[in-house]
């Protein structure tokens, strides 16, 4: 069914605009154009100056995270008909805006890189695979699927206030993904690096992160497990 949708989209071009503003758009969507990303592509056909990131259009690349009617999400996984109008689109909160819906993700990636996001195992690898039981592997479910979209960290008040000091939910989820891996040998070092008033302990279990994750992951639970390990280590 064809239908007309009304949008208000955050616009800012650093070469022209002193300050950001919201611009209204009206777009007609054809049958089968279900997703918000498809609507954005239509809007860009009207106004090619609208800038946003996108790639896979199926929720696996993490490019098109944005603030949709006040809630962070992926445009490609959001049903446009589920949104109340005007549909208000803003860049992810808490990160510097480069242009329109495009934010500078550097602080977010910086925190991801800070947790040593790679398997550490200094033993010479065997000729075949390192064995891991299905049960050991199952522990990684819900941890490894993160697409680094940033929806969670940019909805976390603790990350807004301290993006340089608090690792944030995505980074902590990744940290736990390696801590939990039976093949990883650096748990102590990983915990040492998080044992600081900010890096881990700024999480106040507000759970915003869980509410927005488009992959239904649960960073809060992972953070809880890291805290438990910290405590257990003291005992």
């Amino acid at each position: 069914m064809k239908r007309v949708k009304h949008f208000r989209i955050y616009r800012f071009n650093p070469e022209q605009d002193e300050r950001p503003y919201l611009k209204d758009y009206v777009v007609e969507l054809a049958e089968g154009e279900q997703k918000l990303l498809q609507a954005l592509v239509r809007i860009k056909e009207q106004d090619d100056s609208l800038a946003f990131r996108r790639s896979c259009r199926e929720g696996v690349c993490g490019s098109d995270a944005m603030n949709i009617n006040g809630k962070n999400g992926l445009a490609c996984l959001t049903d446009v008909d589920s949104l109340s109008e005007p549909i208000v689109l803003r860049p992810l909160p808490g990160l510097p805006v480069v242009r329109d819906l495009i934010v500078d993700m550097t602080p977010f990636f910086h925190q991801y890189l800070s947790i040593m996001p790679y398997l550490i195992n200094e033993e010479p690898p065997p000729e075949r695979e390192r064995p891991q039981s299905p049960a050991e592997r199952e522990v990684l479910d819900g941890l490894y699927e993160c697409i680094l979209c940033g929806c969670c960290s940019t909805s976390c008040p603790s990350f807004w206030w301290n993006p340089d000091k608090f690792v944030g939910p995505a980074g902590l989820l990744a940290a736990y993904r390696f801590i939990a891996d039976s093949r990883d040998q650096a748990t102590n070092e990983r915990l040492d690096r998080l044992n600081d008033p900010y890096r881990l302990f700024r999480c106040h279990t507000i759970m915003n992160c869980v509410a927005v994750c488009p992959k239904q992951l649960n960073p809060t639970a992972a953070i809880g497990r890291i805290k438990e390990l910290m405590v257990a280590r003291l005992a």
């Binding site: 000729e127 695979e129 390192r130 064995p131 039981s133 592997r137 093949r183 990883d184």
Partner: peptide
């Protein structure tokens, strides 16, 4: 493929712990 496993790739596993 074995090398990827050594790099940390989370392959699913058989009951005897292989890829």
């Amino acid at each position: 493929v074995i090398e990827l496993e050594h790099f940390g790739m989370p392959f699913d596993r058989t009951d005897d712990g292989r890829i």
